[in-house]
Design a protein around this nucleic acid. Structure first.
Lengths: 226, 226
DNA sequence: ATTTAGATATGATAATTGTCATGTTTTGTT
DNA sequence: AACAAAACATGACAATTATCATATCTAAAT
């Protein structure tokens, strides 16, 4: 019993908003809904996808295994994002692995539907194109940051990024809860280094922590990190 | 007196190949041809573009100024590539600066033409989409490399990348000639570090140099760098 | 041919980051 | 509650990379 895409609010946050009522009805008919538990793998590097996932709830990480055996987290995915678009479009195997950081709810939309709409609805394809263009810009900016900034700067920016894009709960604690290892993997450093920098931020009053939970105490201070 | 796009071979290498004869004729009518000297700026970060550049000849670098004042080269552009697509599509100012590394010849195609074709020719928009999807994958891979690999590894890979994608002349010398500063800027390190690593490669017989010209002497050796 | 600015090269040293060892805390399981 | 496993934390040290100083080489301009 799948609910109706026409009434799904999530769709407003991604390219599916450009679809017509008829197109949405068709998708409603063939999509499948899935619940994914924290830590579960949605797909893995090298797999072939036969559709895209629309994230209804929860957060996941997109990562790639480096030659040295360490995982690099390339992106964090919010509610509303589409997963697997890129691989679908270029008709290649998936380049990144997706792992749930929370319990998630996703809808799987088959490839044929997406391609049909890309071909026939230029509003939709234009929106997908815009989304990709935006992602590409973000990626280029990440490259520059990785290449030019220190671990301390990158970690400060990662915290600010999560704060801005995923928000905080009523107590001011970041909605995304990452392990220290995951932070290291976002920033591209050793786990111990990430731990050390977070400890330093704590000492300096820039953040406070309760277990894995992190609260940003001084946004301006974090922005000033050099 | 602009030559005809219909007869331009370059177009086979980019998304313009998906255009119809009529569409190409229209572009022929409104495009402008430009010669750009080595070192000249094609466009700079923050500018607004009113079209895309189709690279007919020559090579250029796309770079971004980091907060620390250093340039990071994000991509090298070959003959056949389109410049400025991304910014045009997302309707934002340009994120990267483009500077000629050679004497170049480019054609400028106005925004309206591109958008018209994106809207009306789904083969064209699909091809642009594919190109962007491919670029996005490449960018993600670069992020992983920047984050996880050493300067030595990154420089070896940069040399191999240039070898593979831009080729060599009759003497086996890389077709792309970069200054040591540019190499540092590709790899994301200090100029002195880039120089040192290149010197080391030379000592180890992996490369040979004559001034700025570099020849790869041992491809397999470079691939094995750790 | 000489000058000169810029690029290349290398040494010395400092700063950053990674690795290994080890201890503590947290978490989940029986 | 007791235990084991995992995550977190920190010290000591090694490796990598950046910075500063200075020397040499190259290429362009006079």
């Amino acid at each position: 019993m799948s609910s109706k895409c026409e009434q799904c609010i999530i769709r407003q946050f991604n390219s599916l908003k450009a679809l017509t009522k008829d197109e949405l009805l068709r998708i409603s008919g063939c999509k499948t809904s899935k619940f994914i538990k924290k830590g579960e793998i949605i797909f893995e590097e090298g797999e072939t996808l036969n559709g895209v996932y629309c994230v209804k709830d929860g957060i996941c990480k997109l990562s790639k295994l480096s030659a040295n055996g360490k995982d690099q987290i390339v992106k964090l995915v919010v509610k509303g994002d589409l997963l697997g678009q890129r691989s679908l479009i270029s008709d290649e195997s998936v380049n990144l692995s997706a792992v749930a950081l929370n319990d998630m709810e996703v809808c799987f939309i088959p490839k044929v539907e997406i391609f049909g709409n890309l071909k026939n609805n230029s509003d939709f394809s234009m929106d997908v194109l815009k989304q990709m263009a935006h992602d590409l810009k973000e990626s280029d900016n990440v490259i520059v940051n990785m290449a030019q900034k220190s671990v301390k700067q990158r970690l400060a920016e990662a915290l600010l990024y999560i704060h801005k894009n995923f928000g905080v709960n009523k107590d001011g604690i970041l909605n995304v809860v990452l392990s220290r290892e995951d932070y290291a993997s976002v920033v591209g450093t050793a786990t111990e280094s990430a731990i050390r920098v977070l400890s330093q931020f704590k000492k300096e009053g820039l953040i406070s922590t309760t277990g894995k939970q992190i609260k940003l105490e001084d946004l301006e201070g974090l922005k000033r990190i050099e």
